[in-house]
Each structure stands twice: as C-alpha cells, then as structure tokens.
C-alpha cells in the first residue's frame, strides 16, 4: 500500500512540476507548483515525518508561494497576458492533480501506512527535531543565519534608491 501510494504521489509531483515549468501564465505555474508541494508533503507524511510534511505545507505552499503570487501581482502584467482561463484544456490537468491528491490523502488517512514506517525519532517529534537542529546541526544553522543576514543587507543596499542615499548624505 505504502509503495503504491508513494509512486502515485511521485507521479503527481512530477506531473505538476512539468506542468508548472511549461505554463505561460505565471499564476497558473504557481498553482501547479503548490500542487507539487502538496504531493511532496504527503510523501513526507508517508515516510513517517509528519513535522516536515506540515512545514512543507505551511512554509512552501503557504508562505513562499503566497509571496510569489504577490510578486506576480505587483509586476502588473498587461491585461492580454492574463486572460481568464476557462477552457477545458486548462481545467483538466488541475482537476486531475487535485483528484489524485485527494484520493492519496484519503488513502493515507484510512490505512495510515506512516505508522509502520521506522524512521529515527527526530524526524517525527518537534522536540527531538529541535534538539537535533540546534545541537548536532547548530553550526549549519548559524552559517545559514549569517548568510541570510548578509543577503538581507545586500538586498537592502541594492534596492535602496540612489536619491535617498544622497539625501541621507546631505542631512
């Protein structure tokens, strides 16, 4: 059961990613990417890592993709490049992927193959995950946080307008 579900989800994720990179409209691409993230989340759950599954949904499908959508909205695309999509050819793949995900989620909830997965505890419980993250991988966390700090500084510097800087100088 578990391996059947895995292949079903893997196929869904692959299909969704393929559709994502072949769409012309960025909004459609983002929708397919969210689809792929959901499939990945279910796969993590299937492997016995409910915590990472939840994060996949919250961080990737939730936060990052919403950010993508906002960016696309602020890009202010011209009207003809985002026609309303109502044709059957555009609905069919979304519907298919949605049904696939729904069926797999239903199967996972009914049979719960994840309970039989034997993975180390720290993938599963938030406490042991946190302990492993900040103890065993503490150095990696530190490096990433430094990296993000300097990336933010750089983005702030590059994004600031020259005029604002000159005003700052003269004051």
């Amino acid at each position: 059961m578990a391996s059947l579900l895995f292949y079903l989800l893997a196929a869904t994720a692959l299909l969704a990613t393929l559709l994502c990179i072949t769409r012309r409209s960025p909004v459609h691409a983002v929708i397919f990417l969210i689809n792929a993230f959901f499939a990945l989340a279910l796969m993590f759950y299937l492997l016995g890592a409910p915590l990472i599954a939840a994060w996949e949904v919250i961080v990737y499908a939730g936060a990052i993709m919403v950010l993508f959508l906002f960016v696309i909205m602020t890009l202010d695309l011209s009207p003809d490049s985002q026609r309303p999509a109502l044709s059957r050819g555009q609905w069919a793949p979304v519907l298919l992927l949605f049904l696939l995900l729904l069926v797999s989620a239903g199967l996972i909830l009914t049979f719960d193959p994840a309970s039989q997965a034997s993975v180390p505890l720290f993938y599963a419980s938030p406490r042991s995950f946190g302990a492993a993250l900040f103890d065993r991988y503490g150095l990696a966390v530190e490096i990433v946080s430094f990296q993000l700090l300097f990336a933010a500084v750089g983005a702030y510097y590059l994004g600031r307008r020259r005029k604002a800087r000159q005003a700052e100088e003269s004051s």
Binding site: A140, I143, F146, Q147, F150, A151, G154, A155, Y157, L158
Partner: peptide, 22 residues
C-alpha cells in the same frame, strides 16, 4: 552539506559586491 552552505554563503555576498556600484 558543509560545501553547499559555505559556497552559497560567499556567492550570495558576491552577487551584491559585483553590482555594488549602482
């Protein structure tokens, strides 16, 4: 993992440094 983290650390900084003269 050490290679990946370190490589990205200084590559990110170089993106900014290369475009430093706005």
């Amino acid at each position: 993992s050490g290679i990946f983290l370190a490589l990205e650390a200084f590559t990110l900084v170089f993106y900014v440094l290369i475009a430093f003269n706005k």
